[in-house]
Design a protein around this nucleic acid. Structure first.
Length: 279
DNA sequence: AATGAAGACAACCGCGCTCCA
DNA sequence: ATGGAGCGCGGTTGTCTTCAT
């Protein structure tokens, strides 16, 4: 493709960093109404100062109504580990087997929780095994005393940190006869409740969004019926309420959301987005 | 109570693939 | 057959929160 890759967007003209609720609402409302056939043109049409990629990512990883929010269950963790053994770092492939979970989420959980847990288990297990045999070899002894040098089974000096980690995880599975054993150890090594994934948005919002399930991707503007607009209307009213944007909301909620809202002074989101909806 | 370190998660970056003109 | 446009993916980075001192 010869001429080099053109940047996906003009980075000086797009907003970057964390998404505000205002932006989220714009994106949700647009996709709910028109779907997302073209990510590149979507931000412009939706009135967002974001790059299409950023919108896509935000939608897929955070706003999609069919996302399962909250902690990973033990079964899910078990599945991830199992699938990682088969697919390696093919996070999207793994995600496809876990409905409601995203590749990004799985990747994060893997790097932040599962990998560590498995490493601790390996050390723990190796020690037990060695103790029971009564004969630790030199390598195992040194790794025990050095946290950074953990699991360097026949490791080469040339492998990257990541590759090293993968080797370590790969080795892990030699210890398990089956994955129910693994499930047990996950509970033992680290309590499941430590796996909390906090979400700043009220869970009720997600419950509410679930009501919409899959957006009507194939929807074209001309297909819109009045009843649907009523539905969207209702949706925004609920959303306003959920997000604490109604006038009679408690001050605490107001403060919380003001922080997140940045510079969105609109008195009523509904009013603002009616323009969008009817455009 | 203050501060630095570590952890957790969201978001970005850039490459490769596919599709289509 | 070719090349551009767009999307998806995996790796990496940035930022916020929590914990330890």
């Amino acid at each position: 493709m010869g001429k080099g890759r053109a940047p996906c967007c003009d980075k000086t003209k797009v907003k970057r960093g964390p998404w505000s609720q205002d932006e989220d609402l714009k994106l949700i409302s647009f996709i709910h109404k028109y779907g997302h056939e073209n990510w590149r043109s979507l931000p412009k049409q939706a009135g967002l100062l974001r790059c299409g990629k950023s919108c896509r990512l935000r939608w897929i990883n955070y706003l999609r109504p069919d996302l399962k929010r909250g902690n990973f269950t033990l079964e899910e963790e078990e599945t991830i580990i199992k699938l990682h053994q088969s697919f390696g770092n093919k996070w999207s492939k793994i995600a496809s087997k876990l409905p409601g979970r995203t590749d990004n989420e799985i990747k994060n959980v893997w790097h932040t929780h599962l990998k560590k847990r498995l490493s601790s288990y390996i050390n723990h297990n190796a020690n037990d095994e060695a103790a029971s045999k009564g004969s630790l070899n030199k390598e195992e002894t040194s790794q025990e005393s050095s946290p950074n040098a953990s699991r360097s089974f026949g490791g080469s000096n040339t492998v990257s940190k990541e590759e090293e980690d993968d080797v370590q995880i790969g080795e892990t599975f030699e210890y398990f006869q089956d994955y129910s054993e693994l499930a047990g150890l996950l509970q033992e090594v680290d309590k499941p409740e430590l796996l909390e994934i906090p979400f700043d948005m009220d869970p009720d919002v997600w419950n509410f969004l679930e009501g919409f399930q899959q957006p009507e991707n194939s929807l074209t503007p001309k297909d819109h019926q009045e009843s649907e607009e009523d539905e969207v209307d209702k949706w925004f009213k609920n959303l306003e309420s959920e997000l604490g944007l109604e006038e009679d909301d408690s001050q605490q909620q107001q403060e919380q959301h003001n922080e997140a809202k940045e510079d969105s002074p609109s008195p009523s989101l509904l009013e603002s987005y009616e323009v969008l909806i009817n455009h």
